[in-house]
């Protein structure tokens, strides 16, 4: 039986400081970000272009400062605009109103200081894993330095022996690890992750969360993590913001007025956190309630406890 246990245990997480050691992390400031989309969804339209009066607001009045090295989780219901906020931070979309500053300087288009990890691995199928990771390297880096960096990152995410495989020859979890390595190859000051583990199975997701914590410990960059998984947010983040419509709007997804920050909470305790902690369970219930999920706290006939106060206590 012990064989079975070791077989499903996560592969020993590589804790080498192999990642970019000269890492810098930047603050991200969102100032009154708002984003509306044209009434008709236009595919492939240029970001920021709007036509027609009936624009559909998705985000409004998002003001937020992320500290350098902080891990911020952005939670929200499906379609609430959390990915849009992240895409704006990555320069893939432009805000309709407001501005973003990274490390004090305004963001202008796609920024070399940011790297994005998408929900899908989005690896180029005709390149090997190593060549895909190399796509993320900064342009001015030399060939030898680039190769060394790719090798170090593959080691960090445990893909060294798969360096010469094509993406379709590896599992979804491996592809997502390669995608993470590609984002890290830029040595980003801000790492933007858009539901990076959302498409993975539950066990692989937990392993990937630990891997991300290892990476962050090795190279403490600023991380903005979009997720719909409350547990993931609690496990990884220093701070969680909940996007949604304000109480006066009746639509949870903010269909009429656009979503904004409705809750913000600091997760207590250092990482890695106990996945079974009662304290986190209480926060979990609160976040789920914020997402409009009934926690069924009365199911045992005992009222949900409120003995753990909001942080800061």
């Amino acid at each position: 039986m012990s064989n079975v246990a070791t077989a499903i245990a996560p592969a020993a997480p590589p804790v080498h400081r192999a990642g970019p050691a000269d890492n810098t992390s930047f603050a991200v400031e969102f100032a009154d970000i708002g984003r509306s989309f044209a009434a008709k969804p236009q595919h492939n339209s240029q970001p920021g272009s709007q036509r027609g009066a009936a624009a559909r607001p998705v985000l409004r009045d998002v003001s937020l400062t992320v500290q350098p090295g902080e891990v911020l989780a952005i939670l929200g219901t499906s379609g609430c605009g959390k990915s849009t906020l992240l895409r704006i931070a990555g320069g893939l979309d432009e805000p309709s109103t407001g501005s973003i500053r990274i490390d004090g300087s305004p963001l202008n288009g796609i920024d070399a200081r940011c790297a994005v990890g998408f929900q899908e691995p989005r690896l180029l199928p005709w390149r090997t894993i190593a060549a895909n990771v190399a796509l993320g390297l900064p342009h001015r880096i030399g060939r030898a330095a680039g190769n060394a960096r790719v090798a170090a990152l593959l080691e960090l995410v445990g893909l060294t022996s798969f360096a010469d495989h094509r993406p379709r020859a590896v599992s979804g979890g491996m592809a997502q690890r390669a995608s993470l390595a590609r984002a890290l190859a830029r040595n980003p000051g801000v790492l933007l992750l858009d539901e990076p583990f959302g498409a993975l199975d539950a066990l692989t997701r937990l392993k990937m969360q630990d891997l991300l914590l290892d990476v962050h410990a090795a190279a403490p960059t600023t991380i903005l993590l979009v997720t719909h998984d409350v547990d993931e947010a609690l496990q990884l983040a220093d701070r969680i913001i909940l996007l949604g419509a304000d109480d006066d709007a009746d639509d949870m997804a903010g269909g009429r007025t656009g979503a904004t920050i409705v809750q913000e909470l600091t997760v207590p305790g250092g990482r890695p956190r106990d996945r079974g902690s009662a304290e986190l369970a209480e926060l979990r219930g609160r976040l789920l309630a914020g997402l409009g999920i009934d926690r069924h706290g009365q199911a045992r006939g005992v009222a949900a406890t409120t003995t753990i106060p909001h942080f800061p206590y």
Partner: peptide
């Protein structure tokens, strides 16, 4: 894929 390419500069 095109967007991923753009995101990496």
């Amino acid at each position: 894929l095109v967007e991923a390419g753009r995101a990496f500069g």
